[in-house]
């Protein structure tokens, strides 16, 4: 059996620094050779920490992300759409579960990660702090929010940490399906009545800028980028991915006959669509808890957690009784 000696790193020894430097160099060499890092491998504690943060925030996003779309399940306009939306939100919950499992391979527990989110100490994607006001928002979320998520997640399928990369491969397959479904809702609306088209345009107007913010702060101010790139957790910069997304989305909007709410947008000589300045003040406010739905989202998750406590306690109590039963019978 191969011993997992990570814990021994905390033992005070004189040559510990040297040993760690050697391990770090070896680790970096593996990363550079495109090897996958697995849970039992040595890794720098900062790598472990940054991945735990990123994967758990990703998991929290899937779970909080159930709420804005879940808001329309009971009001979906046809049974076909209702079933598809329900299936989609169920997939998101499944993604949350994969991702918590991936985060747990780094030594954290799902409970402590969830507690950190409920306590407001861990973040989730800023996009889920925006409200779904009309049915067109459901189409727009599929088209743009899932579209942006795919742009972010496809490179993560090659991320250096094996369990995360593998989770992303599974997530991306379902996510692409959701995105097509969302776009199909938009196509239906845009080919529909005037009021449906107006509804679609209004949704695009409200979601466009928040979606661009999903790629994170501009490269010049992104605090996690340098090490994340070196460790191949991140393969492209925030601005690179954002540009890629805009370039892919503009023709889709044109096909729909919708206008992107950015009058300053122009196509440059290389074919890239150059967008106007993003309102980073709004982004910071949303991250700080002051978006339109931050309070509601957290309140809903806390309520589910608190009101479900007696159910989880019952399940635990029953499992404990069951575990005891054979012993009790044997003692008789």
């Amino acid at each position: 059996m191969r011993m997992y000696t990570q814990a021994l790193n905390t033992t005070e020894t004189d040559d510990r620094g040297l040993e760690d430097a050697a391990k770090a160099a070896q680790f970096q060499a593996r990363i550079d050779a495109e090897e996958r890092i697995e849970p039992n491998d040595w890794m720098p504690s900062a790598y472990r920490k940054t991945l735990t943060r990123q994967i758990s925030q990703h998991a929290h996003s899937e779970i909080v992300g159930m709420l804005p779309e879940g808001n329309w399940i009971t009001r979906a306009p046809s049974l076909r759409r209702k079933a598809a939306l329900l299936a989609k939100v169920q997939d998101e919950c499944g993604h949350g579960l994969y991702l918590y499992a991936a985060a747990e391979t780094l030594g954290a527990s799902r409970e402590e990660l969830v507690d950190a989110m409920l306590a407001g100490k861990a973040k989730y994607s800023s996009i889920f702090n925006y409200p779904t006001l009309t049915w067109a928002d459901i189409g727009t979320i599929g088209w743009l929010v899932d579209g942006a998520a795919i742009m972010n997640q496809i490179p993560l399928c090659r991320c250096s940490y094996g369990p995360y990369a593998r989770a992303m491969i599974r997530v991306c397959k379902e996510e692409s399906f959701h995105q097509r479904q969302g776009y199909e809702i938009m196509v239906t609306l845009c080919r529909g009545s005037d009021e449906q088209k107006t509804m679609a345009q209004d949704a695009l107007n409200r979601w466009w800028w928040p979606v661009l913010m999903m790629f994170g702060p501009p490269d010049a101010t992104s605090q996690h980028s340098d090490t994340s790139t070196k460790w191949k957790i991140k393969r492209f910069s925030n601005d690179e991915l954002r540009q890629k997304f805009v370039d892919a989305t503009v023709p889709q909007a044109q096909y729909l006959g919708l206008t992107i709410p950015d009058p300053g947008m122009v196509q440059d000589a290389d074919g890239h669509w150059r967008y106007s300045e993003i309102d980073w003040t709004e982004f910071k406010q949303v991250l700080a808890g002051n978006g339109p739905c931050n309070r509601d989202r957290m309140a809903a998750r806390r309520k589910a957690h608190e009101e479900g406590a007696w159910v989880r306690e019952a399940a635990a109590a029953y499992a404990a009784k069951r575990a005891q039963r054979p012993t009790a019978q044997a003692a008789e």
Binding site: G70, T74, K82, A83, A300
Partner: peptide, 26 residues
């Protein structure tokens, strides 16, 4: 059952209740 979506006592039950809801709507 679909009204539970996102509000269940644990994620596994969120999935289970949505799953049953989906079967029934089908």
């Amino acid at each position: 059952l679909s009204e539970w979506c996102g509000h269940a006592p644990m994620l596994e039950e969120d999935m289970a209740l949505s799953n049953i809801a989906l079967d029934l709507i089908g």
